[in-house]
């Protein structure tokens, strides 16, 4: 973990299936409503395609499918969270984005081992609040380009 110092962290809270996730606010550029997405052939199935984000062609990935959950039809609450990691700007499709909260750095706990293993350590930790549990995303891992290539290769193998 980069920072272990005591301090406040602002999180955007969003929903996937019945789980609540958090992403650091300073990595989130904007939250968009669903709009037309152009499919890009030859990409892993979690890559939904690209969309026109105010003149910038932005790749969009379906976070449910990225985490191997079932796909869900778009609803009124579906949102695209545009995050920036390094030079990359990528949109993440989530069921809904409903909250911004402050948490203490010290409240972040390491993810349970089994979860970390199961999900390619895309989880940075968990945050326990009064009556809810937040899963803190490791965005760099979620958008890891190597992962993308690995999945691509896997699919090519399957095709052969």
């Amino acid at each position: 973990m980069e920072t272990t110092a005591v301090g406040d962290v602002k999180l955007i809270v969003f929903q996937l299936q019945d789980e609540e996730y958090g992403a650091e606010v300073d990595k989130v550029r904007s939250i968009e409503r669903m709009q037309h997405i152009t499919r890009v052939p030859g990409t892993p199935d979690f890559v939904e395609g690209v969309m026109n984000l105010r003149g910038v062609v932005t790749p969009i990935i379906d976070l449910r499918r990225r985490f191997r959950m079932n796909k869900r039809e778009t609803t009124d609450t579906t949102r695209i969270i545009i995050v920036q990691v390094g030079e990359m700007e990528v949109g993440l499709i989530v069921d809904s984005a409903n909250d911004v909260i402050d948490i203490q750095q010290s409240n972040i706990e390491a993810a349970p081992d089994s979860a970390a293993e199961a999900d390619d350590s895309c989880i940075r930790g968990v945050v326990k609040l009064e009556n809810r549990l937040l899963i803190l995303l490791h965005l760099e891992k979620v958008l890891d380009a190597d992962e993308l290539i690995a999945v691509e290769n896997l699919e090519e193998h399957r095709e052969l």
Binding site: T38, V40, G49, V50, G55, V57, P59, V90, L148
Partner: peptide
């Protein structure tokens, strides 16, 4: 297409059409 999708085969880029779609 950006860094994230840089290895897309047979696609050299994208453009935005008159209707705003890519």
């Amino acid at each position: 297409l950006g860094d994230y999708l840089k290895n897309t085969k047979a696609v050299s880029g994208a453009t935005i059409l008159g209707d705003g779609q890519v």
